[in-house]
Design a protein around this nucleic acid. Structure first.
Length: 469
DNA sequence: GACTATTATTACGCTCAGGG
DNA sequence: CCCTGAGCGTAATAATAGTC
């Protein structure tokens, strides 16, 4: 590792000591490089990382937003609150003042020291930046790059007029009227040449509900896009914040324990590593994958294998094993396969399948009919029993509750709670199709803010959506 | 762990080049 | 000739790397 940043991968005392003993060379306050290596090359290689370290609030703009590295002559373009020029050896970081409401997206950059995220100008923003007057940023966008951006915009918005309208919307917000006008003229004047430039990092996923495609979810390296198919069913997935993952999809993604177990870097990696989700949703890369996945249909009911609220079938899921291996690690292993359903929610849960002879096994490659909630550790051992108790109380008070049972667990573990899914079909002929949506996705609230809501807020959000308020 | 020195941030004023 | 926008410098202040 050739670059050392105080507060990121080295601490201030160590960096000072190593600089004093000649092992490191200080370039600027907080920025060090190995003394033995080619300093010029190191600076240029990690230019974006250095820029983010120095100016955490600025975003990459103009040519740098396209390249995600400095230009050939060593210039890196940022936009932020103020104008600032910083020179580090052969690298020049040029910052200009950002407009009031810039449109930025996140890009993922890997300079050999690991991936990190940085804000960059969106396509529309970049296009407008190219028409700024007397700006070095604008000059960095040459004719071919401008042409490429225009093509991407036309592709994204369907037509030159659509792209011009979208660009105008952003221009108006920032009072960049002159730039908006130039951009429109550029888009409408030129003959439309169809040369779809595809990004290697792009992702093209099919989202299906009960096995039938609902639409396409694409990621172009910067932003998510949701394109629904023509259909007459309910609009299950609404796109609220442009460029972001639709909240409905976001609410299906693993969180808490499962998220840490899967160890996926971001939403893209998560969606690529899993195929099956709650609410009868499948997300796959190829249409052929859809038919290969088992349909989630409830054929064996739990009450057939329950006596006195205790499960009487055979549990063949993961156990604790010998002392070395923990149950959580064994459970995590079933999620290594992409056809194991993913569950949202913070607690530990496992997707299970109950077959006709009462065998309860993980849903890997099998239908997902029941949810197993094992006991936690560190004071949460009794949670399944408490949850079972609450459901039983609710049932006797007249509430409709799903079928539940306590499952005796192997290796001396406390019992787990088994809950029957009520959102899946009970036969192939069944015409009722259900989907569940949590209020995070209805309200468009980040999953971290899950427990911050109020009843009033929920009621207000529900009223305009409901057909029988 | 506490003090010192450097740098980002902010506001404001000045200059320069285009445009009307 | 004036107005406007981009870029730069300066001074005061806040944050934190550097130093002991």
């Amino acid at each position: 590792m050739a670059l050392h940043l105080v507060g990121e991968n080295i601490d201030k005392t160590r960096s000072h000591y190593r600089a004093e003993t000649g092992k490191l060379v200080q370039l600027m306050r907080g920025i060090y490089v190995d003394a033995g290596e080619n300093i010029e090359a190191t600076v240029l290689k990690h230019a974006v990382r250095i820029a983010k370290y120095l100016y955490p609030n600025a975003y990459l703009s103009a040519a740098s937003a396209v390249l995600l590295r400095p230009t050939r002559d060593g210039r890196l373009f940022l936009s932020g609150r103020r104008i600032q020029r910083t020179r580090l050896r052969s690298l020049e970081i040029i910052q200009n003042a950002a407009p009031d409401h810039p449109s930025v997206a996140q890009a993922i950059v890997d300079d050999g020291m690991g991936e990190f995220r940085i804000d960059v100008s969106s396509m529309r923003q970049r296009f407008l930046e190219g028409f700024r007057l007397r700006s070095e940023h604008a000059a960095s966008i040459d004719e071919t790059v401008r042409e490429a951006i225009a093509n991407r915009l036309i592709e994204e918005y369907g037509s030159a007029q659509g792209a011009a309208d979208a660009t105008w919307a952003l221009a108006r917000e920032n009072q960049w009227y002159r730039e908006g006008e130039h951009a429109e003229r550029f888009l409408l004047r030129r003959p439309v040449t169809a040369e779809p430039a595809r990004n290697e990092a792009a992702l093209d996923l099919i989202v299906a509900w009960h096995g039938a495609p609902l639409g396409k979810l694409t990621h172009d390296g910067f932003e998510w896009r949701w394109n629904p198919d023509d259909q007459n069913g309910p609009a299950l997935i609404r796109r609220t914040a442009p460029g972001k993952l639709p909240p409905f999809i976001l609410s299906l993604l693993p969180e808490g324990w499962l998220e840490s177990v899967l160890n996926d870097r971001d939403e893209r990696a998560m969606l690529r590593s899993g195929k099956r989700y709650m609410s009868n949703i499948t997300i796959v890369e190829r249409a052929s994958d859809l038919s290969a996945l088992p349909p989630d249909i409830l054929l064996t009911r739990l009450n057939g294998f329950t006596r006195n609220s205790v499960f009487t079938g055979q549990y063949v899921g993961p156990g604790r094993g010998d002392l070395e291996q923990s149950f959580e690690r064994n459970l995590a292993e079933i999620f290594e396969r992409t056809d194991t359903p993913r569950l949202s929610g913070v607690q530990i849960k496992a997707p299970m399948f109950l077959d006709a002879d009462g065998t309860l096994s993980p849903s890997t490659g099998k239908p997902f009919t029941h949810i197993l909630k094992p006991a936690g550790t560190g004071g949460f051992e009794a949670l399944p029993v408490i949850e079972w108790q609450s459901l039983a109380l609710g049932r006797s008070a007249g509430f409709t509750t799903p079928a539940t049972a306590l499952v005796p667990m192997p290796d001396g573990m406390p019992p787990a709670l088994l809950v029957e899914r009520f959102d899946i079909r009970t036969s192939l002929e069944e015409k009722h199709l259900l989907a569940l949506e949590d209020f995070c996705s209805v309200l468009g609230v980040a999953t971290e803010a899950k427990y911050d809501g109020t009843m009033e807020r929920i009621a207000r959000a529900l009223r305009p959506l409901s057909t029988s308020p």
